[in-house]
């Protein structure tokens, strides 16, 4: 299988600070690959190296089979980049943003006009085409940024936290667009600190923390490897002493306001807990998620 990205022992320093501490990553053609990790994990730094904007401090990196240090412009010509922070030209219109970006890729004016019309439809921004960007909602700006990144028909699309800060409806709309791209055969690399986003979109992902990769696999593999089928959540009043329930579950995580009991049968454990006379404020049985994987691997929650 062909790898679009190959990184070995890749590092990034900022002065004495090591933001990325030797990661190995392979991204295959056609898949949706994720970097899941909290703020400061080094996701954006990694994305900037893969997008051939920032140089690596150490290790090896190949993108589309080429060396970013030598062939940066050639590689970038075939990438689409959605940065963490929107950098649209807010004083231009929606359509102008798309057309101008096409010109950066050396496309003819005619081709830019056609492509802009096509992408306006894809981003569902047709009725805003000739409005200025500034007053658009966050979700619309994000869709425009994604549309803009597609202007050169990229083989590999890099999305740095595509839905951070958006409301649920706007997120679902965006996910829908990304599914469509995946179906069209575009390889996606997505960073996120939302485990539901990683589960929804990614075929394969790495869990990143403190500049290192803690685990790698498909969402379901990771869950079965690092967690149990079900989780029983017991919520207690703040400050209350939490009972010792280790013996009822495979593993127990103690969070400030609740206990997480990892087990293959949550209802059964809940019944046993009630038999013991333990009275949580609230109880909930749910399926394990990547959040649990992250907690297991790092001892911390993803979003606090």
């Amino acid at each position: 299988m062909e790898n679009l990205v190959e990184a070995k022992a890749l590092t990034k320093h900022f002065g004495a600070f090591e933001a990325v501490r030797g990661i190995d990553v392979e991204v295959r053609r056609g898949e949706a690959f994720g970097f899941l990790g909290p703020n400061g994990a080094g996701k954006s730094s990694t994305m900037r190296m893969i997008s051939c904007v920032s140089g690596r401090s150490g290790g090896e990196l190949k993108v589309l089979g080429m060396d970013p240090g030598r062939d940066g412009p050639k590689i970038r010509a075939r990438l689409g980049v959605v940065p963490q922070l929107d950098n649209l030209d807010t004083e231009l219109t929606v359509r102008q943003n798309l057309q101008i970006y096409g010109r950066y890729f050396g496309m003819s004016r005619q081709r830019c006009r056609e492509k802009a019309a096509e992408l306006l439809e894809f981003a569902q921004l047709g009725d805003r085409a000739d409005h200025e960007v500034e007053p658009l909602s966050g979700g619309m700006k994000r869709r425009l940024t994604i549309a803009r990144s597609l202007v050169n028909d990229p083989e590999l699309l890099l999305l740095d936290e595509p839905t951070t800060g958006l409301d649920p409806q706007a997120r679902h709309l965006l996910w829908d667009r990304l599914f469509r791209l995946k179906q069209d055969g575009v390889t996606l690399i997505i960073t996120t600190h939302y485990m539901d986003e990683a589960e929804q979109l990614c075929d394969r992902l790495v869990v990143m923390d403190g500049g290192r990769i803690a685990a790698e696999g498909s969402p379901s593999e990771l869950i079965s490897r690092y967690s149990t089928k079900e989780v029983l959540e017991l919520r207690f009043p703040p400050g209350a002493r939490k009972p010792d329930l280790e013996r009822f579950a495979d593993r127990v995580e103690v969070l400030p306001d609740r206990l997480l009991l990892y087990t293959h049968d949550g209802e059964h454990v809940l019944a046993k807990v009630h038999e013991q006379g333990v009275q949580p404020v609230q109880s909930l049985v749910r399926r394990s998620s990547l959040e649990d994987v992250f907690l297991r691997l790092t001892g911390r929650t993803l979003v606090d």
Partner: peptide
């Protein structure tokens, strides 16, 4: 603020 340079260097432009 506008970050237009940042947007440009994600393309083949150096």
């Amino acid at each position: 603020w506008q970050k237009s340079y940042v947007a440009m260097v994600a393309t083949p432009i150096t």
